[in-house]
Computed example of a mutant assay.
Amino acid sequence: MSTVYNFSAGPAVLPEAVLRTAQHEMLDYNGTGVSVMAMSHRSPEFQSILHHAEQDLRQLLGVPSNYAVLFLQGGASAQFSQVAMNLAHGFASIDSVVTGNWSRIAHEQMGKLTAAKIRLAAQGGERDGLKTLPSVGDWDICTESAFVHFAANETVDGLQYGEMPHLSDGLPPLVCDMSSEILSRRINVADFGLIYAGAQKNLGPAGVTIVMVREDLLARCPDSIPAVWNYKAHADRQGMYNTPATYPIYIAGLVLRWLQTQGGVGAIEEANRVKAELLYRAIDGSGGFYRNHVAPEARSKMNVVFTTGDAGLDERFVREAALCGLRQLKGYKTLGGMRASIYNAMPLAGVAALAEFMAEFVRKNG
């Protein structure tokens, strides 16, 4: 089979080494004679898988000891409501920064199961026809709000905070959706009250969502929330309140181990920088054939969006690219154009192949 590069925004590409290990262990995990898929979540074998996944995550991101790490279900979209239910009880408001598709949906969903008012603290805009992100200094934060929610990277719009926002002491805790960039660069977890991330972009398959929450915030979780949605209930039972997504956690653990072999988050951050620069050079060096409508300082290193400006030509690009093994390049349904998601597991060779195809497409159609 010829090489296929998967540029899907999610579920996304996984490291080949991870898939081969999973293939080898599919019927017999570590000599147990049992597949992880059929393994009790309370067995010593799965407890070891869960423990090592958490420890690798803590080491890779430098997660402080006063943060609980939870492996939950429901995807990142469930967190739009769950974080509000757990952390906003007794507060009059939540601050929300809207910069693209997913933070907009979060803004709309957070207020449905809480009495707190959802305040628009800041909104993305445009400068000279290019999409921009509001700087932290321009966020209108209410000091009495329960927390400030934002998305670090917007997969649909191709926007990303180049410098991760943080707030000064005395302001509400930051809550961040890091689904599409978790483990792609170094961060200071202590700058956040809570981080959540769906696994299916940079961490593993769909089915598990990582939540890292500062332990003092668990005191906010009211007993009135059903336990299955209560962070404290999950933390108190070491993630065993109900059956976790065992196989996705197993795969996530393999991805975390793979990241260790790549040199950790610092090394993968540099690799991601090189890949993104290569792809943006292909766009900017096309003489205007390809267009990216994001201000340079706000360009995503995870999701590169571009268009020819001609819907028919965009369709041809996607179709011909797929024939060359460059798959899932169609842009989000509401924006059109193209989108190349170049997460941690996308090799440099895949990005180079896309850049080469882009140059050839210009030669044929420019």
Results as ranks from 00 to 15, higher is better:
residue 6 N to Q: 09
residue 8 S to K: 06
residue 11 P to M: 02
residue 12 A to Q: 09
residue 12 A to Y: 02
residue 15 P to M: 02
residue 18 V to Q: 06
residue 26 M to N: 13
residue 27 L to Q: 14
residue 27 L to W: 13
residue 28 D to L: 06
residue 32 T to P: 12
residue 32 T to W: 10
residue 34 V to N: 10
residue 34 V to K: 14
residue 34 V to Y: 05
residue 34 V to T: 15
residue 36 V to K: 10
residue 38 A to Y: 07
residue 38 A to F: 11
residue 40 S to L: 01
residue 47 Q to G: 06
residue 51 H to E: 12
residue 52 H to N: 14
residue 59 Q to G: 05
residue 64 P to K: 03
residue 65 S to K: 11
residue 70 L to S: 08
residue 70 L to N: 06
residue 70 L to C: 02
residue 71 F to W: 14
residue 73 Q to G: 12
residue 74 G to E: 10
residue 75 G to R: 10
residue 77 S to Y: 07
residue 78 A to M: 09
residue 80 F to K: 12
residue 82 Q to H: 03
residue 85 M to G: 01
residue 86 N to T: 02
residue 89 H to G: 03
residue 92 A to K: 15
residue 95 D to A: 07
residue 97 V to P: 07
residue 103 S to W: 01
residue 103 S to P: 02
residue 104 R to T: 03
residue 108 E to V: 03
residue 116 A to K: 07
residue 118 I to Q: 12
residue 120 L to S: 09
residue 124 G to L: 05
residue 126 E to L: 07
residue 126 E to P: 00
residue 127 R to L: 11
residue 132 T to S: 07
residue 137 G to Q: 14
residue 143 T to L: 11
residue 144 E to P: 08
residue 147 F to T: 11
residue 148 V to H: 10
residue 151 A to K: 06
residue 155 T to R: 06
residue 159 L to N: 09
residue 160 Q to P: 09
residue 162 G to I: 00
residue 164 M to I: 14
residue 165 P to K: 06
residue 166 H to V: 06
residue 172 P to Y: 11
residue 180 S to W: 03
residue 184 S to F: 04
residue 185 R to T: 02
residue 198 G to M: 02
residue 200 Q to F: 05
residue 209 T to L: 03
residue 210 I to G: 04
residue 211 V to Q: 01
residue 216 D to N: 11
residue 216 D to F: 03
residue 218 L to I: 01
residue 219 A to N: 13
residue 223 D to G: 05
residue 226 P to V: 11
residue 226 P to E: 12
residue 226 P to R: 13
residue 227 A to C: 06
residue 228 V to M: 13
residue 229 W to F: 15
residue 231 Y to F: 15
residue 234 H to I: 01
residue 236 D to F: 02
residue 236 D to S: 09
residue 237 R to F: 00
residue 239 G to C: 00
residue 239 G to Y: 00
residue 240 M to L: 15
residue 241 Y to N: 03
residue 248 P to F: 05
residue 255 V to R: 09
residue 257 R to N: 14
residue 258 W to M: 04
residue 263 G to A: 02
residue 264 G to F: 03
residue 266 G to N: 00
residue 266 G to P: 00
residue 272 N to V: 02
residue 278 L to W: 11
residue 281 R to S: 11
residue 282 A to F: 03
residue 282 A to I: 00
residue 286 S to A: 11
residue 287 G to H: 06
residue 288 G to H: 10
residue 292 N to T: 05
residue 293 H to V: 04
residue 294 V to F: 09
residue 295 A to Q: 15
residue 299 R to Y: 10
residue 300 S to P: 12
residue 305 V to Q: 11
residue 306 F to W: 07
residue 306 F to D: 10
residue 308 T to D: 13
residue 312 G to D: 14
residue 314 D to M: 04
residue 315 E to G: 14
residue 316 R to S: 13
residue 318 V to H: 13
residue 320 E to R: 11
residue 320 E to M: 12
residue 326 L to R: 13
residue 326 L to P: 14
residue 332 Y to P: 00
residue 334 T to E: 08
residue 335 L to E: 07
residue 336 G to V: 04
residue 339 R to N: 11
residue 340 A to Q: 08
residue 340 A to Y: 03
residue 341 S to I: 01
residue 348 L to T: 13
residue 350 G to Y: 08
residue 350 G to V: 07
residue 351 V to M: 08
residue 351 V to N: 08
residue 353 A to M: 04
residue 354 L to D: 04
residue 354 L to F: 04
residue 357 F to N: 09
residue 364 K to E: 15
residue 365 N to L: 08
